[in-house]
Simulated scan of single mutants.
Amino acid sequence: MKSFEFLSTNREEKPRKCGITMVLDKGLGLETASSLMDISGEYVDYLKFGWGTSIVHEQDIIKAKVEMYKNHDITPYTGGTLFELAYKKDKLEEFFSEAHNLGFPAIEISDGSVNIPHEDKLECIGLAKSDGFEVLSEVGKKDPSLDKELSLDERIEYMNEELQAGSSLIIVEAREGGKNIGIFDKAGKAKEDEIDYILNNVAGDKILWEAPAKDQQVFFILKLGNTVNLGNISSDDITSLETLRRGLRGDTVGKI
């Protein structure tokens, strides 16, 4: 039983179909991660093993962390960089096998760093689905100059095609910094007109908005409500975001 629950806005319990929170694990130790999930795991839906961090840590630690997250009803998944490397090196079969061996129930498919023809990306989504994985796919480039070459209509087309190919969620690229990329300007402020255009053309409950900064999280919650799907949340900010969703901080109190 929690304290002062009578003052809190209720939230849908897991497994949630909306109000999803995706947290970025940048290399937490097992004990640290386990302790964090003991206190905040109920507020986390997806846990991304960032970038290529799974390569530089021992397999038994990765396996133990994956199992621990699943025990908290969290879906752990591999970051898109691993998929992109596997695609580039023509090692997709080995990549899928290793992900299964480590216990990952889901993978991210992206083309943020490696040039992948969109038809190939769609085919890879289908391959991963047929191999038993849940797929989250990401739209956008990590290099801001390349990302700007993608028109808004192209992004929307890609998002809808990737959903049709089997992705359960579409991640809107913002990187860890959330500035000068995708839907955020150089100062990290959301481009509201572009967000509205996306929402008019893509199912909102299928979008996972990367929003690493507090101001970005506040923006989305005030604009779309506390059931908005948010990602790339720092492990340090899990409780902070949950209090924003429940109207327990000055930014959202009385507004949820």
Rank of each mutant, 00 (worst) to 15 (best):
P117N: 02
K214E: 12
W209N: 07
A174R: 04
V228A: 15
E173S: 10
F184S: 06
L152Y: 02
S168A: 12
N200M: 10
N160R: 04
Y158T: 11
L150Y: 15
G103E: 11
E149Y: 00
A211L: 13
K141M: 03
E157G: 13
L146T: 01
I107E: 05
E194F: 14
D131M: 14
W209K: 10
L169A: 03
Q217E: 11
A165H: 02
E162M: 09
I107A: 08
N226V: 04
G126D: 04
L102I: 12
L163C: 13
A190H: 10
S137C: 07
G112H: 00
G204Y: 09
V139H: 05
R155C: 12
V139F: 04
P144L: 00
E176W: 05
I109M: 04
Q164D: 13
K121P: 06
D120T: 06
D185R: 00
E194Q: 11
A203W: 10
E192K: 13
V139N: 12
I171Y: 07
S168H: 10
D196P: 10
S151Q: 02
G103S: 06
I125W: 05
I198P: 07
E108A: 11
K142Q: 00
P117K: 00
L222K: 15
D131N: 15
D205R: 13
S137M: 05
V202A: 08
F219D: 09
V139E: 06
I195S: 09
S137E: 08
K129D: 08
E162N: 06
A213F: 09
I198R: 11
P105N: 00
K223Y: 11
E173M: 02
E162G: 02
I107R: 12
K186G: 07
D185T: 05
E176P: 08
E194H: 08
L199R: 14
G182W: 03
G112L: 02
K148S: 03
D143Y: 01
V202R: 01
E149K: 07
C124W: 12
E210A: 10
A128D: 07
K186P: 09
D205V: 04
L152A: 01
S130W: 02
K189Q: 14
I171P: 05
K129R: 15
L222W: 08
